[in-house]
Structures are given as C-alpha cells and as structure tokens.
Design a protein around this nucleic acid. Sequence first.
DNA 1: AACTCGGGGGT
DNA 2: ACCCCAGAGTT
Length: 310
Amino acid sequence: MQRAVVDWFAESARDLPWRRPGTSAWGVLVSEVMSQQTPMSRVAPRWEEWLHRWPTPADLAAASPAEVLLAWDSLGYPRRALRLREAAAAIAADHDNVVPVGEEVLRSLPGIGPYTAAAVTSFAHGTRTTVLDVNIRRVLHRIFAGRSHPAPAPSTRERAWASAFVPQRSHVEWNAGTMELGALVCTSRRPACEECPVAEHCRWLAAGKPIDPQRKPTTQAWNGTDRQLRGAVMAVLRSCGPAGVRTDLLTASARELDAEALAALPDPVQQAIARVRELGSSERVARLIADLIDDGLAERAAGNRLRLPG
DNA sequence: AACTCGGGGGT
DNA sequence: ACCCCAGAGTT
C-alpha cells in the first residue's frame, strides 16, 4: 500500500525547485514557510529569489525588515516573512548558522509550528517523523477512515493515528508522496480517483465517496476589515520600490497616488488613505504603518472594523 | 476551541 | 460568491 504511493511519487512528483539535489536545509525551511497557506505555483519564483539573495540564515538576518517584506512580495501573511527573518537571526546566533536538528528545537523558532518542524525534519534531515498538512490529512482520512475531509485542525489523537502509517524505510517518500497525492490527485473538491495509485485500497472510494457534512468555520469577512486595509497599504508600499516600505515614506506614497489608481482601490482603502492624508502628521502616519508592518495591532478593532489612530 | 492573519486563482 | 491553499500564534 505504502509502496504504491512511493512508486507513484517517483514517477509523478512535480519538478519543484527546492526538490533539486543539493538544496540546503535552509532552503527547505524557506520553502515550507513560504508554502504555509500559499499555493506553490506562487511560491516557486519567490523561493528562487530568496535563496539566491539570502543563501544562509545569517544573510537573511542581516537584511532589514523592509527589504524582507518587499522581497516577500504578495505571498500573503507578511508576518511570516518577519518571523522567518527572526528565525534566521536565532539560527545564526544560537545554532552556528545551521538549521537545527530536532522538532522541539525547530518549534522554538518564530513561525515554525508542528507542520514546518516535521517537514524540515523529514525533507531536509531525512529523519523519520509524521508530517501532517492538509493534503496528507485528507489522503489518510479517505484511504483509511473512509472520510471525505479531516477536522479543521489535527488533534493529538490524529497524530498518533497517522504515525502508524509512516513506513520504516521510505518514510521521506511516503510523507512527500502522500502530500503530492493530495495536491495533484486526491484534491479537496474534485478528486481524480481514476488516476489514483491506491484507489483499490481506498475506503472512501469503496463507500461511494460520501461527503462529510462538516461545518466549515464561517468564512471571514473581507470588505471593510483591517486585513483589507493592511493588504492595500502593503501593496502601495511595495509599488514604491525598495524605499517604499520605509515607514516614513507612506505619506508621500499616499499623496503620489493619482486619482485613477486611487479610484481603483476598494472603498474602505480609499477612505483610509483619505484619512491618512487628512491626518497630516507624519508621526501619526508612521505609527500607523509601523503597527501595520509589525503586525502590532494588539488591540483589534471591535467587529473587525477599520481603526486608525487620531 | 475559536479567532486572527493575505492574496490569488479556480469553480 | 464562495472555496482552496505544504499553518502559526494568540486568546
């Protein structure tokens, strides 16, 4: 059973840049953080740039947050970029500039949680462990539990359950292969069971592919939220080039927006930028943007509404 | 356990 | 209009 997945992976694995022989553990770590909640088609080009520009943790740690955010481009969740830089600084300072071994140590680094620690351990260090991402979880639930979808978050019990399927020998290929199978064949919406190498072993397929009546955490609102504003502000700053992420230049950035570009922005953002202009105080603006970029919005606006200082 | 945190592409 | 994506951190 595991063999079928491993063999399928050997034939069908995508040619992703971080799968090239010779990729460092640092390269693997960067790819995993970039891939958190972001499709790999968007990750690949950024990864190439990052590894060329910052080939070791110390190189990234020496860069400014602004440079890092700019290079992150529009991968989303920019706090990941800041945390990755912090993790790089810790690796450079405390681990001789080498990605440490051991999931517990890895998890102590900023932005590295259960998934990323396990992925680095398996894919970079080749140590046997249980990797659980949304793809692997879905594949395991379908094959072995006859369920269409896993719970929103993995429990301790699920981890123990999943660990029993990890083979002793080709564990890296099993982890990578089940993940790839979930990404390419056993997809959430329209699984291609006719192409599946383990269809004959799949309890879910045998049961007629029943869809779990599972509740999805009601999708977050977007229009009018702080997230929307922060995203728009970051986009404006990125468009200003290398200096654009400097917090003291936002006023100029907002003022330089022409009417056409401004009209194209969502209403809440137009209003926000109008207010930023009215504030007039570069100090206030700098504070706002510093909060936005640091993700230091400790006080979250009630109802997730936009809140500006002043 | 429930929320929060970006952004783009697919359906 | 949703849905999905190699999740992590906070409350």
